[in-house]
Design a protein around this nucleic acid. Structure first.
Ligand SMILES: [Zn+2]
Ligand SMILES: [Zn+2]
Ligand SMILES: [Zn+2]
Ligand SMILES: [Zn+2]
Lengths: 162, 162
DNA sequence: GCCAATAGGTTATAGAGTAACATATCTGCC
DNA sequence: GGCAGATATGTTACTCTATAACCTATTGGC
């Protein structure tokens, strides 16, 4: 069974970017929130590839793209907005941010993270979510957010070593 | 079904501390590594309760306990040692560290974290681990480490609100 | 006792994130 | 259009977390 994630495959990534920005625009319109130039630009930079980017990396990228310098609070506010709207996720173990391929649908933050190439693959496994909720319930715990961060080697990078 | 975790129950916590330090001593002896005064003291401080503590909080506690000031690298080196030996876990979402109740047995880092009282409950659910490995395998991903951090309200804190 | 290895001390700095306040931009209303 | 309140961004300064680099002390085998 070969379910190689798109992030690890050769693919038309312009398509990923386009879809993500389109979905973001639609969501923000439907919610009546403002996807400003800055927010859109940060989202676009995050989607440059399937690897999580740190806030300060994004700052540098913004500085190069914009000529103008951007201070930390500016980029963090944009990131906060994108997080609130579910357009990106935060990868705690990396202090970094990555675009969500399915914003709008309520879901948790479950990732496979390759330590070699840096790709982060978002999982969509309702049964995993269910089992986590079940385990928490047995301890009388009320779940608000989940973060599953699995680190290791993606299919490409594991294959390269054999 | 009431499986209230020990961390959320009234319990003889001296017993928790004693067991943890005893287990640590035994493990380090059997592995031929040195559980120095500093490392033991840091581990003991971490075990003061069932709440993750930050490195700088530990530094302050050390300073008070020791009279001598301790600089960041000192405490981080002790933490690195304890992490390597599996005596503590790192809670990424909090940038904090917590004692492991079952060191020596190879296992992953799965926690329920209460946002109100700060308690972190370590899960021991082999089936959850298995399911995560299965999901990763389907993506061709080689798992090295897992970090599941579920945030919400523990049984005590959820109950207090009703 | 001596040497190599390991652990800890010290200083400085990098990296991540926020508080507080000023300015600009947008939106709805007159 | 012009105004007022709300929202968004700019700016400065700072806190918290973590590590690099180098030096000294301690340990354990020979
Ligand atoms: Zn893509
Ligand atoms: Zn990879
Ligand atoms: Zn206890
Ligand atoms: Zn609680």
């Amino acid at each position: 069974m070969d379910h190689t994630p798109i992030a690890c495959s050769h693919h038309d990534h312009d398509h990923c970017i386009h879809d993500a920005l389109e979905a973001a625009r639609n969501l923000c319109v439907s919610r009546g929130v403002r996807l400003t130039d800055l927010r859109l630009q940060v989202l676009e930079l995050i989607w440059q590839n399937h690897k999580p980017l740190g806030a300060y990396t994004l700052m540098e990228m913004l500085a190069k793209a914009n000529t103008r310098r951007v201070a930390p609070p500016t980029v963090y506010r944009a990131l906060d907005f994108l997080l609130e709207q579910g357009l990106i996720h935060r990868i705690n173990v990396l202090n970094a941010f990555i675009g969500c391929p399915s914003p709008g649908t309520k879901h948790q933050s479950h990732f496979l993270i390759c330590r070699t190439c840096g790709v982060a693959i978002e999982l969509d496994e309702p049964t995993l979510n269910q089992q986590i909720l079940q385990v928490a319930k047995e301890s009388g715990f009320t779940v608000e957010t989940q973060a599953l961060e699995v680190s290791g080697l993606c299919a490409n990078c594991a294959g390269a070593n054999t």
